[in-house]
């Protein structure tokens, strides 16, 4: 409970969650919020931002702001589905490996290391390109199927250290069944690690999906921020100086990725207290004449109240 409060008091986490909330709102209400139909062509070809088209139009006069608003859903749904499926696989593999030990552990670890070492994006491209139709959900599942390894690796290490703790040993000595032991004693203690793995996978999934759309593997009629960049790239937006075509979409991806990273920082600081920056605010320290340094404890002779 105290940890959760701490989590929400963290400035990074609050910023991250606020941005995520904003994009989630776009994803849910997108079709109602967007000023135009993103596929509706108009006479305003490749026009810069104006009062009628806040973020300008593309080469066939479609409204870019509408494309971004509608595209948010495609991005978030894929991120969520891929994140959930990869996390499920990661938890299954990682916790099992950490808990069973021995040969089972060796082979499961080798399996997740293999998936880590094999370059995922080319593999995803290879699979997606050979599928008859690589829609959003399919891509999400492919990303989930290849992107679970990092989470599994971290979870395995964490489970291994948990397994040796007293309370787990005690429950085991009491003859508690293994699956109960895992559900009741181990998983609750892995929450932070699982959450951080989930957020990391969502980040990876969003970037992968956007990349796949950008190189034209997913259907170009399905709007997401990568699709916008695909159209921009293929219609020489760069050479024509149409910055409004490719800057906002990329900025949205970066903003979303940053929000996810910020949330993950907060989780990391809970898992690894050494990273906590509590009380280390550069400005207030400088005001008090404290220069935090490793190896030279600051001496500040202040008047004690």
């Amino acid at each position: 409970m105290r940890n959760q409060l701490l989590f929400l008091r963290n400035g990074k986490v609050v910023t991250g969650l606020a941005i995520l909330g904003f994009f989630t709102l776009l994803a849910v209400l997108g079709p109602w919020l967007s000023p135009y139909d993103p596929n509706q062509v108009s006479d305003a070809l490749l026009s810069p931002p104006s009062a009628t088209h806040w973020l300008g139009t593309d080469h066939t006069g479609r409204d870019i702001l509408s494309q971004i608003i509608v595209g948010a859903r495609g991005v978030l749904v894929v991120g969520l589905v891929a994140g959930v499926s990869a996390t499920v696989v990661g938890v299954l593999v990682g916790v099992t490996a950490g808990f069973v030990g021995g040969v089972g552990d060796e082979s499961l670890s080798a399996l997740s290391n293999m998936f880590l070492v094999i370059p995922q994006l080319p593999l995803i491209i290879l699979i997606a390109a050979q599928l008859p139709s690589a829609g959003g959900l399919t891509v999400a599942l492919v990303i989930g199927a290849t992107g679970w390894a990092w989470g599994a690796r971290v979870l395995r290490a964490q489970t291994l250290s948990l397994r040796k703790r007293d309370f787990v040993e005690a429950a085991r000595a009491n003859g508690e069944r293994t699956w109960r032991l895992v559900l009741a004693e181990v998983l609750p203690n892995l929450t932070a690690v699982i959450a951080s793995g989930f957020v990391g996978t969502v980040t990876f999934a969003v970037l992968s999906q956007v990349t796949l759309s950008f190189i034209g593997i997913t259907p170009v009629s399905e709007w997401n921020w990568g699709t916008i960049l695909f159209w921009a790239q293929n219609n020489l937006a760069l050479q024509r100086g149409a910055w409004w075509w490719f800057v906002p979409a990329g900025a949205c991806i970066a903003l979303l990725g940053m929000a996810l990273t910020l949330v993950n920082f907060g989780i990391d600081e809970i898992v690894n207290p050494r990273l906590r920056s509590t009380g280390l605010h550069a400005r207030s320290l400088r005001r008090r004449g404290i220069r935090p340094r490793v190896g030279f404890t600051p001496v500040v002779r202040e008047v004690r109240s």
């Binding site: 990329g250 970066a254 996810l260 550069a282 220069r291 935090p292």
Partner: peptide, 30 residues
Amino acid sequence: RRGTWADGLLPVATFFQAVPYFWLGLITIA
């Protein structure tokens, strides 16, 4: 140098980490 002005570089690094590679490519070309 944790806890000094150097911490101010962290958000910049976070941003660059979150940017998709190809988009950064597009921007540098532009």
